[in-house]
Simulated assay, not measured.
Amino acid sequence: MFKSDRFFLMVVSIVMFSLFLVGCGNGEENQPQDEVVTDENEGLYIVTSFSILNDVVSEIIGDRGTVDYIVPIGEEPHEYEPIPSDFQKVSDADVFYINGFNLEEWLEGLVQNVGDVPTVEVTESITPIKLEGGDVDDPHSWMNVTNVITKVETIVNDLVERDPEGEEVYRENAAAYIEELEELDGWIAEQVEQIPEDMRVIVVSEDAFKYFGEAYGMETEGIWELNSHEEGTPSQMSRVVDVVRDRQLPAIFVETTVSRSYMETVSDNTGVDIAGEVYTDAVGVEGSGAETYIKMMEHNVNTFVDGLTQ
């Protein structure tokens, strides 16, 4: 979508949200049924930018608050267009947690129109991997489990500042979750060892596994670097086809938030099967087996091992 189109949609959303607020002022009978209602006695109301971060925050806050997110599962967060109810969610929030690293450029515009809602980038203590050219941060830091542990520490410290009475709960929940994440980190390293060294290559549409590759000793290849840079040009396709052929890889993969058509073209031109779907920008829907960050990562690793050890 061209930038002018995005600007137009953003303006329309802001206008609709303003009209929505005016309508709310005309009496309770005009309030929509799905309006978020918060109560000071119900704890913090937290909004996150996307489902993966939502799951992480939920593990920390437990029953002491409510967590919601903006980008629906199944949609990629790079180019999501906010709708009026998104403005309402953020406006009602006690704090808005975002990934940062340029993942939510459009959401930053949203925040500017909902008042003084605190916005916290949970990657503030993480060193980014740069995309080709060296000027743009790769936002997919959650693909390295140790980065998620760092995010947990950032989030729990922020929560304690906002709700000191909940410190014991937050820190206990965070400690228990970090223990699970450390186990996951070690498990991933063990699983990757099962893949022959010359087959440790992840080929997908968006090169979203750079942090994973750096952490666990795998090479990564994508047709493009970010979904917001999506092109799929003949030269990009040809390069990936050559990689798959030259490395004689037994499998390629496709993301749940990207059209399968690109990787199907690679498969058709190489004779290499798509071994399965992997999760990059969102957790899975209910019943998928990838409903949480931990389950999502376990699914991805199992899919890589099964595909690359054929």
Rank of each mutant, 00 (worst) to 15 (best):
Ile70Gln: 03
Gly43His: 09
Asp242Tyr: 02
Val305Ala: 11
Gly271Met: 07
Asn157His: 07
Asp246Asn: 15
Glu190Asp: 15
Ala251Asn: 09
Asp207Lys: 15
His229Glu: 14
Met263Pro: 01
Phe212Gln: 09
Ile98Ser: 08
Met297Cys: 07
Met297Glu: 06
Phe96Lys: 01
Val145Phe: 09
Glu255Met: 12
Glu108Phe: 10
Val301Thr: 12
Ala93Gly: 06
Asn26Ala: 13
Thr220Trp: 01
Glu76Lys: 00
Ile149Glu: 04
Glu81Phe: 02
Glu153Leu: 09
Glu225Asn: 13
Ile70Asp: 02
Gly27His: 08
Ala290Leu: 08
Phe17Met: 00
Ile274Asp: 04
Thr146Pro: 02
His229Gly: 11
Glu180Asn: 14
Val136Pro: 08
Phe96Arg: 00
Gly166Pro: 04
Ser205Pro: 05
Ser125Trp: 00
Val22Ala: 11
Val136Trp: 07
Tyr211Ala: 08
Asn26Met: 14
Ser49His: 05
Phe50Met: 05
Leu181Lys: 08
Arg200Ser: 06
Gly271Asn: 03
Val285Lys: 12
Gly287Cys: 08
Asp198Gly: 01
Glu59Asp: 10
Ile129Asp: 05
Glu105Cys: 08
Leu131Thr: 10
Glu75Ser: 11
Leu107Glu: 03
Thr127Asp: 13
Tyr293Arg: 04
Ser49Asp: 11
Ile188Pro: 05
Gln236Glu: 13
Leu44Cys: 03
Val57Leu: 05
Ser51Tyr: 06
Asp158Ser: 06
Val56Gln: 07
Glu180Cys: 05
Tyr177Ser: 00
Ile252Val: 12
Pro77His: 05
Gly166Asn: 08
Val278Phe: 06
Gly27Trp: 07
Glu75Gln: 14
Glu193Cys: 07
Phe50His: 12
Asp135His: 07
Pro139Leu: 03
Gly25Val: 08
Val203Phe: 14
Cys24Phe: 08
Val122Ile: 13
Leu19Asn: 03
Tyr279Asp: 09
Glu104Trp: 03
Ala175Gly: 05
Ser58Asn: 01
Asp246Val: 06
Gln31Asp: 09
Ser49Ala: 13
Ser18Pro: 00
Leu159Asn: 04
Val301Trp: 15
Pro164Leu: 04
Thr270Gly: 02
Ile188Val: 12
Val71Ser: 05
Ile252Asp: 00
Val203Met: 14
Met10Glu: 12
Val36Leu: 10
Ala93Leu: 04
Glu182Ile: 12
Glu264Leu: 05
Val47Arg: 01
Lys151Pro: 00
Arg200Ile: 09
Asp5Asn: 07
Val152Ile: 13
Glu193Pro: 09
Gln31Met: 15
Ile223Lys: 11
Gln248Val: 02
Glu59Asn: 13
Gly217Thr: 04
Met10Asn: 12
Ile52Glu: 05
Lys295Thr: 03
Gly213Tyr: 00
Asp158His: 08
Ile195Tyr: 04
Arg247Ala: 14
Thr303Arg: 10
Asp138Thr: 05
Phe7Gln: 14
Leu181Arg: 06
Gln31Cys: 14
Phe209Pro: 03
Glu105Met: 11
Ser125Glu: 13
Pro118Met: 02
Asp198Asn: 15
Pro72Ser: 02
Thr270Tyr: 05
Gly166Phe: 02
Tyr177Phe: 15
Ala251Phe: 04
Pro250Asp: 08
Glu264Ser: 11
Asn41Met: 12
Tyr279Phe: 15
Pro139Tyr: 03
Glu291Cys: 02
Gln112Glu: 11
